[in-house]
Design a protein around this nucleic acid. Structure first.
Lengths: 243, 243
DNA sequence: GCAAAAGTGTTAATTTTACACCCATGA
DNA sequence: TCATGGGTGTAAAATTAACACTTTTGC
């Protein structure tokens, strides 16, 4: 990673990525536990390089953190409260992690990073929806661990991340129908049941099979392929792929 | 206005306001013609003060430019291409307005403003919908004029503003139904016909009277008041107000 | 043949659209 | 009393939801 400076990155602007993961009928979110004393949880944030498009920056951050590419990534809201949450949090973090925190900050190199990092920030929210099986989160120097948390068991996060997460979930549900991003979670060939399970997981409610099938097929984006013999003692479902 | 500097404003971030105005069944947009040689048209942009919430900044910019308060203002998208449009435009502007442009730029004061202004910017798009009768646009030092342009007669604008305008119009139409912002355009008491005319203007299509009435009343946000005798030789319409 | 689950079809309920009808108003 | 336009009601059309029926598969 480049040195954090105004020359390399756009100052005071962050991208916050809410990475939703799907596996086994569960919707989870990828959080980082920070490599500091105490239980501090955070979304994956990053900054925008000076020569980089906004959407590219979001993709890069997602790739750096989760090791995946070519995924549906959607900007959903900008957060721009001018409160002191960020600075307050970082100050308390330094205080509890470095016995002589004033000295720590005043070291030339640290001082620059501190000044850059503790300014008031605007954050641009993006969310992604990924197949957990195809993702291998990578630790950075700031993380002690990166884990998937069920969306109803999300620990309290630092700064404004709780709000970002909740808004991302709302946006995901509002967007999914007309943007077809659910299909990104599936292998090339999939059954209608698999599609339905994703929807049911995301919306946390059940859909009737026949009506769901009609609705999805009416979207006219799927192509029916051969049948799939599952070994189960029932009728074999068709496979589908995106047109 | 404060001096443009990193100390006063968040650098490299602008707010672009698309101010839609309604009057006499016409939807127009407020553009500034810049106070420079040549025909340069622009949306109303501004910057975010260091101590200011994002939404407040948008409100302030709207008030400075259009002289109105308490209006529906909606963030709709962030634009973040890393292209050189901004710098190229500003360079050509300086070139054609100052015979010795290098000298102009290198004057100490101008040099700072030039450097601040010509960096790569991220812009946060907001739109507003106002009653043209209640608005008195104010000229700033950068405008030679500020005028309302019918949305189908918008002159080509500088930089990326054409795209911002088009996206704002799409967002306005998508948002209007469930956020009731159309009522902001009306006086305290209004008739159903007036509401319908706004909708018809915004969507550029006609609605059938009875169905429109049903739809709006089903929203359950209006309260029916006394009748209004218009002097016309027909049944007097009811007045409504927001609940 | 039977249970299980997939696919299709049918009916009912709801929402949307079109349009007819009645009513108040001023000329 | 008539033309105008506003308010209401109703029938048709389209969409959505509920559920029953049929088919395929392995045991």
């Amino acid at each position: 990673m480049d040195v954090l400076s105004d020359k390399n990155y756009i100052p005071q602007v962050a991208i916050d990525c809410v990475i939703f993961g799907y596996e086994n009928h569960q919707l989870k979110v990828l959080l980082s536990k920070l490599a500091f004393k105490g239980n501090f949880y955070a979304l994956h944030s990053g900054f925008i390089k000076q020569e980089e498009d906004l959407d590219e920056a979001a993709k890069r951050i997602l790739e750096d953190r989760a090791g995946i590419q070519n995924i549906y990534l959607q900007q959903f809201k900008v957060f721009g409260k001018a409160d002191q949450k960020r600075k307050q949090f970082l100050d308390s973090l330094i205080k509890s992690n470095y016995s002589e925190n004033q000295k720590f900050i005043s070291k030339t190199k640290n001082a620059k990073a501190y000044a850059w990092f503790t300014k008031r920030f605007i954050s641009i929210g993006y969310y992604a929806l990924v197949d957990m099986k195809r993702v291998s989160p990578k630790l950075t120097q700031f993380d002690v661990s990166i884990d998937w948390y069920p969306i109803h068991e999300v620990p309290e996060m630092i700064m404004h991340y709780d709000e970002v997460f909740q808004e991302a979930l709302d946006a995901l549900r509002a967007d999914i129908d007309h943007k077809f991003n659910a299909f990104n979670l599936l292998p090339e060939k999939f059954t209608m049941k698999e599609v339905q399970q994703i929807y049911e997981t995301i919306f946390e409610k059940e859909f009737t099979r026949s009506n769901f099938q009609k609705k999805i097929l009416d979207m006219d984006v799927l192509e029916r392929l051969e049948k799939k013999l599952t070994g189960a003692k029932n009728k074999a479902p068709y496979l589908y792929k995106l047109k």
